[in-house]
Design a protein around this nucleic acid. Structure first.
Length: 571
RNA sequence: GCGCCAGUAGCUCAGUUGGAUAGAGCACCGCCCUUCUAAGGCGGGGGUCAGGAGUUCGAAUCUCUCCUGGCGCACCA
């Protein structure tokens, strides 16, 4: 926070000179942009502490200010309004412009961070419910890297639980697995379509058909014991699924360092369970092996974590704990971040507590659950189509692409599939990421497909216009000079955007980055509309405007890179 | 029942440790393309921040209360 920190230093000196406690100094962004750029409201706190009239406090502070770069003004009853002068803004603009990283503040404590994208289930195709985890995860990954951390990511596929037993049992009953079970010499291919049909079918049945549920339980257990042919079938399903998942996630610019799943933790499960047993942390409850994680001060229900089912099978908590052990023996991350929807909050509380109790996660390792909200329909429940189906991710992507193509066609750009995908995906991603991640929000297909106003395509459009402008310019440009209000606004928005990375990396609030980059683009659009750059006859002004445009483009590009949104050359 | 979260413009959402006149986008109305991409810019209308009480110089923000909705509460993930 370049400017804010500097203003606070100036204020602290003035506080000391005035005899006030300098710890009370706080500088914030202006809530009244028409009268100031930054503000300090600390006079009220000082007034209270020393029992002095707040007006006198503010006036005293202002009198003791020493600064050539900023103007400090009194505003009733006791606000201190701060304005940056043009020289300072010019200097800032040029130093940001000459820095490859645009002076984004680097963390003082760089960490190795592992991101866990909380398991797309491999038994079925990706649907709309699988959208937020990779979108949010990918952006957080990029954000944390931008501020100086090292990150690795793991898809952590859901591939070792009941859903696998269910799928295999249902496939078997419908004759897909005759070859594996020796009933046929001909191998029937398992396809994505068959998985889409068979898993939901079996999933419904286990709730009503007890015999089938018993079969599913036993198949799940057999798989977890890597028995034949269950393990071979699992491998085939997994391969088909991973292929599709990675393809679709790549379309969204989401990538993983590792395509691991729960099953990859299997070799660590026995040791994990033994660690708990040896430390005396386990007990048998209703036939299951459990770990108590409740604390005296808990106000919410806190059931024990289950390590082994009554039949010896493994559960979600088991594989998650074994996965932590695996990671601490391979990657040794300082922090593990789970990007998983908030309905699983209790599960992660249990796992985190159990991991700390057992020492599987060292005391200084940070375990974080980014508990994002669900996308709801207008009925307030997780989004379903009118017929009650979930929408496939692939269908959403094609819907977005079609809409983008129509729009491109109006602008005379035909048959550019790649561009249409970039625009469509930008709309969806920005629409999602500009919400606060932890709240549920209403999924609106029109909003996801909209290209006007505060959207991803607006940012792409602004960037494409700058690119086009710069390519037409015949001047060489480097020095920026800030003189007008429009130019001032651009730099002020830029400063806020650069600050937003620090803010966002502390609490994972990508929406602040979204808002800040939109405001930057918007302030540039105003400038662009009011000032015809290429035809300006004053060459100094023209060159400065070009340099300012170039800086704006760099800053928008940096932000969109964090959001994993592509910038096209034209649209 | 217990617990967690939410309720802000017609709609979808922001609102940084409590600050000045509560913002944005969409939708609606009006203006701006003989000049760099109109997916744009400028202006306008639109609010009991769910209701009530309290703390404070000051509350959308903190406390209490109440209403409504969502989610979670051991062998699913």
């Amino acid at each position: 926070m370049i400017v804010k920190n500097e203003i606070e230093e100036i204020l602290k000196n003035a506080f000391v000179k005035s005899g006030f406690d300098k710890d009370l100094v706080l500088c914030s962004y202006s809530s009244r942009p028409e009268s100031c750029d930054y503000q300090c409201n600390s006079a009220f706190a000082v007034s209270k502490k020393y029992n002095i009239n707040p007006k006198i406090v503010a006036e005293t502070i202002i009198k003791n200010i020493e600064s050539d770069d900023y103007e400090f003004l009194f505003s009733a009853p006791a606000f201190i309004n701060i304005k940056i002068n043009n020289n300072k803004l010019t200097m800032l603009a040029n130093s940001i412009n000459s820095s490859p990283s645009l002076l984004v503040e680097q963390t003082k404590t760089p960490q190795k961070i592992l991101l866990d994208y909380g398991g797309a289930n491999i038994a079925k195709e990706l649907h709309i419910g699988h959208l937020r985890s990779p979108l949010i995860g990918e952006s957080i990954n990029r954000l944390l890297k931008l501020v100086g951390n090292t990150c690795v990511s793991d898809s952590h596929l859901g591939d070792w639980g009941l859903q696998m037993g269910t799928t295999i049992a249902q496939l078997e009953e419908d004759g897909y697995l005759d070859y594996y079970f020796g009933k046929s010499k001909v191998k029937k291919d398992i396809t994505l379509e068959s998985l889409n049909e068979e898993y939901p079918k079996g999933s419904k049945r286990i709730k009503v058909d007890e015999a089938f549920k018993d079969k599913v339980d036993s198949y799940t257990l057999l798989l977890q014991q890597k028995a034949s042919p269950y393990y071979e079938i699992f491998k085939e399903i997994r391969e088909i699924s991973v292929k599709t998942i990675s393809k679709n996630y790549a379309k969204l610019n989401c990538f993983f360092t590792y395509f691991y799943g729960e099953s990859d933790a299997d070799p660590y499960i026995e040791r994990t369970v033994n660690i708990f047993k040896e430390k005396g942390l386990t007990r048998i409850s209703e036939g299951a092996l459990v770990v108590d994680v409740v604390r005296e001060d808990d106000t919410e229900p806190m059931p024990p974590a289950i390590l082994k089912k009554h039949n010896g099978g493994d559960l979600y908590a088991t594989t998650d704990l074994a996965t932590i052990l695996l990671r601490n023996e391979t990657e040794k991350p300082d922090t593990i971040i789970y990007v998983v929807d908030k309905r699983q909050e209790l599960h992660f509380k249990q796992v985190f507590r159990a991991a700390k109790l057992s020492g599987i996660s060292p005391a200084n390792q940070k375990l974080v659950h980014i508990a994002y909200g669900t996308m709801n329909g207008t009925d307030g429940k997780p989004f379903k189509t009118r017929s009650g189906e979930t929408i496939k991710l692939e269908d959403i992507i094609s819907m977005l692409t079609t809409k983008a193509k129509e729009k491109l066609s109006q602008n005379g750009i035909e048959n550019d599939d790649k561009l249409a995908l970039q625009i469509g995906v930008a709309s969806m991603k920005f629409g999602d990421l500009s919400n606060t991640y932890d709240k549920d929000y209403v999924f609106n297909i029109d909003k996801f497909c909209s290209f006007e106003g505060k959207t991803g395509p607006y940012l792409q459009y602004t960037s494409a216009r700058i690119k086009s402008l710069l390519s037409k310019a015949e001047d060489k440009y480097d020095k920026i000079e800030i003189t007008t209000n429009d130019e001032r606004n651009i730099i002020l928005c830029l400063l806020k955007l650069l600050d937003s990375y620090e803010f966002a990396s502390k609490d994972y609030s990508l929406n602040t980055v979204c808002l800040a980059v939109y405001n930057l683009a918007s302030s540039y659009a105003t400038f662009y509309n009011n000032f015809k750059i290429l035809t300006c006859e004053d060459s100094k002004k023209r060159k400065s405007a070009l340099a300012l445009s170039s800086l704006t483009l760099k800053a928008i590009s940096q932000a969109l890179d964090v959001l994993a949104i592509d910038i096209p050359d034209r649209m």
